[in-house]
Design a protein around this nucleic acid. Structure first.
Lengths: 347, 347
DNA sequence: CTGAAAGCGCTTACAG
DNA sequence: CTGAAAGCGCTTACAG
């Protein structure tokens, strides 16, 4: 220890500065925050005193008085899904321009933890909450109503809650339209036997995607074949197993539409391991447009996550900074990104 | 609007609860926090009152009094690098067990923003700071010393600062040893012409890796060939360009060691686009062991980021919860993960 | 078992 | 231009 000791435990407060500068605390506050009039000479004396003492204001005092924390929380299900990075970045850079900082929170997609995030809003730990939620539970609405501070929900199925006059905004991406676009692309290049990796049964999100798959088949006049649809846990491993099963069918599909990219990547690996060639033996599409899809040249849907984050943050800022009172429901449409994996159909 | 109005703007405080329950605020505090003795009957009356009023305590009041925020900040350079996810998860789950929440902050690898994170510590917005830093600037040390609250630094070159008695802990990964291990592996399977994608010149982190590459060559008795070493901006695109250049040399290397995975992936794409085969035409190794490397079967170094996060968080908890006063310098050694891309050398 | 009171560190009308 | 004072919402000895 070469004398790099931490300072004594008495934190220096605004009182200490006032005493040293020989003025009142009100004047110190004015000088340091540049509000109201302070004589130049006094100001300098105060700044010198603050520097001498290494004074740093304690935020809790300010928050208690002003009721503003300058903190926005973004609550996301987990850290390992690339789809959230764009959202984080979009929110972060938007709120930063208004002097807010970002507080991240992980819900693991569980209602209890989503409620935990709302609780922090109620406790005034944060000024606003942007919540990427999986749950569509009445309790979530109830607690948000109690909070009083602004909330924006970011989700995939927000049509369920939109336009009901609830006191929160929603930003959603219309994945249903996305799956339709993917399917139309596959149909257009000539595929008639299209398999589907469906993801997790009994979830809003994957149920809706499956609906879109069915509608696309129907409006193309194709029959829905049970054996072409494989549910799994929407992971890479799930996609691997599902993909291998479909690819080994006697009468195998010529294309497989995956309800997310992780499954598509698993499927890609399965086909590679069996020795098949994409797209000659099988066309493949994903959804989410994560980095790996680009590298593996897998057709996918860009979910515009950065724009979603920016939109949510802007709505938040409208309430917090511009005193907006109404909430909006904003919809984005995914962009289809066609790549080698579904460039053509080999005849 | 179907009557889902936000409550009136008067937030209910502990005073309101006390009034409704007909007791003093001190008793309300005791009852709600389960501290000291409160008669069962009184407690119930208070809880009922709190529920009636939808009372939620305001954290700022508590923080001001207790000087504890229960918030740990993890400051990381950016959101788009997978290497940080494991750290986030490790920190998050460790501190959660002690009742702390995670606040994330982005520094963009800039000294100013790293100082910004330290500032929040000084302002008492958080109880402790875990900082993944790029800068090795004296000012950072100075401000940390001023802060008084615990700091743990997470970095690649912390040997520069370790063991000097500074008032912060460090957790590092010995990348130098990692590069040596990769090179020894390549040498062992017979490679003598080993190229190197060096990353960004003039940075501590990449300079050190380059040193390790040179030392490995030297101790194997091989000469350092300038034309086999390519510096770039350590991105996928940088790796693509550097990799293509080396692969197109008349006397091309039989293996390329990359100073991170992004470059390795870019190199993989370059070789693929030229029509080369890995590992038959070229052995390839990366560093960071990100997801894509696993999928592309690229040999890499597991940086044990989750363990690093857990270690940093544990050291933080030792100070905050167990009143530890000393700081430690912890080192991890990367794990070599050999995959197809360098499984053998074709003769 | 409960209440009265002090005080955490700020900001902000209000006087002067 | 500056000071005195109130008050934000809590917790915590200290009495009783």
């Amino acid at each position: 220890m070469e004398g790099h000791e931490k300072p004594a435990n008495h934190r220096v407060s605004i009182n200490d500065v006032a005493k040293l500068a020989g003025v009142s605390v009100g004047t110190v506050s004015h000088a340091l925050n540049s509000v109201g009039y302070v004589k130049q000479e006094t100001r300098e004396k105060i700044i010198r005193a603050a520097e001498t003492l290494n004074y740093v204001p304690n935020r809790a005092g300010r928050i208690l008085k002003t009721r503003k924390t300058d903190l926005i929380m973004l609550a996301i299900p987990d850290t390992s899904n690339e789809i959230y990075f764009g959202m984080i970045e979009g929110v972060q850079k938007t709120i930063k321009e208004y002097g807010y900082s970002l507080l991240l929170y992980y819900t693991n997609g569980l209602l209890d933890q989503e409620l935990g995030a709302v609780r922090l809003l109620q406790e005034n730990v944060i000024d606003g909450l942007i919540l990427v939620h999986f749950s569509y539970d009445k309790r979530l609405i109830d607690e948000i109503i109690k909070a009083g501070n602004p909330v924006v929900l970011l989700g995939m199925c927000n049509h369920l809650w939109a336009n009901r006059g609830y006191p929160f905004g929603t930003v959603s991406i219309d994945v249903y339209q996305g799956i339709l676009a993917v399917m139309q692309h596959l149909l257009r290049i000539g595929h008639k036997k299209i398999g589907y990796l469906a993801g997790k049964a009994d979830t809003e999100v994957y149920g809706q995607r499956h609906q879109a798959y069915m509608e696309a088949l129907k409006s193309a006049g194709l029959e829905y074949r049970q054996e072409y649809v494989s549910w799994n846990d929407y992971t890479e491993m799930g996609g691997y197993n599902s993909g291998r099963a479909l690819y080994r069918l006697e009468d195998k599909p010529t294309a497989i539409c995956c309800s997310n990219d992780l499954q598509a990547i698993g499927c890609w690996e399965a086909v590679r391991d069996i020795g098949g060639c994409i797209p000659d033996d099988l066309a493949l599409t994903g959804l989410d447009n994560i980095n790996i899809s680009r590298i593996l040249n897998i057709t996918s849907l860009d979910m515009r996550e950065m724009e979603m984050g920016i939109s949510a943050a802007n709505q938040m800022m409208a309430h917090l900074v511009h005193d907006e009172k109404e909430y909006e429901d904003v919809y984005f449409k995914p962009n289809l990104i066609v790549r080698d994996s579904s460039l053509y159909m080999k005849r």
